[in-house]
């Protein structure tokens, strides 16, 4: 029997109705948060449109979005659970289960693939002892395979926990990155310079960023020769 039979293998699905992680006492907005939500409602003709912003806020607050949090977000905007759940499950970036402290989204989409995206992913998997989609035992890192993150000129690259981009990845850069993340230091925003600025502006055009990098192509990994 081939492992690539057209019939999909039956996989074990995660528990869709786990015991609630957060109690009713925890599921409340602070005054500052409510103020924000009210302002968001003002931005749209209908309150429901603010659900994406409310889900982002909840994810920041609770770390991830178990069903009771999604229900809570829906109630905030007078939406049914099914409506809110439908939105939360449609988008990749809303975490439906608990993740590590740092979520490492390695881009492996084809622009990164042809520049060694999978080499970086596999290096990271080996280094942290997990497969893509899993979290390390210490709860520190979740490694994920991501679709195009929109920085193809600096391939391979990754995003850390829906935030900062790390460009032009090499195994050495991964080593340094993991070390600094373990020490609690998240890299700062890096501005990618435009090649045409090199001549006309002497490189970077922004004086308000500390870290800049140029788009570059990584040399072919040795084992690929």
């Amino acid at each position: 029997m081939s492992s690539f039979d057209i019939q999909r293998p039956i996989v074990e699905l995660p528990d869709q109705n786990p015991d609630p992680e957060f109690s009713d006492e925890e599921l409340v907005w602070t005054d500052a948060e409510e103020e924000k939500i009210e302002a968001w409602k003002e931005q749209y003709p209908e309150d429901q449109a603010a659900i994406m912003k409310v889900l982002w806020l909840a994810q920041e607050k609770f770390g991830y979005l178990p069903p009771e949090v999604i229900k809570f977000c829906g109630e905030t905007l007078d939406m049914s659970f099914s409506q809110a759940y439908g939105v939360a499950t449609f988008y990749h970036q809303y975490y439906k289960e608990e993740k590590g402290t740092y979520v490492l989204d390695v881009c492996t989409c084809f622009s990164c693939q042809v520049c060694g995206g999978y080499d970086i992913l596999h290096y990271l998997e080996e280094k942290l002892g997990v497969h893509a989609g899993e979290t390390t035992d210490d709860g520190m890192f979740t490694v994920q395979e991501a679709e195009c993150l929109g920085s193809c000129g600096s391939a391979p690259m990754m995003e850390i926990t829906n935030g900062v981009y790390v460009h032009n990845l090499t195994p050495e850069k991964i080593d340094d990155l993991i070390e600094s993340l373990r020490a609690g230091e998240v890299p700062s925003f890096t501005s990618m310079t435009l090649p045409q600025d090199e001549e006309e502006l002497g490189g970077n055009r922004r004086t308000d960023v500390e870290s800049t990098e140029a788009y570059q192509t990584q040399p072919r990994a040795e084992h690929m020769d």
Binding site: S111, V114, C115, C152, G153, S154, A155, M192, T193, L194, P195, Q196, A214, Y215, Q216, T217
Partner: peptide
């Protein structure tokens, strides 16, 4: 033009 892939100097050019 967002140039990527196996070129010497990738990046965004106008």
């Amino acid at each position: 033009y967002g140039m990527s892939g196996h070129v010497k100097q990738p990046g965004v050019y106008e």
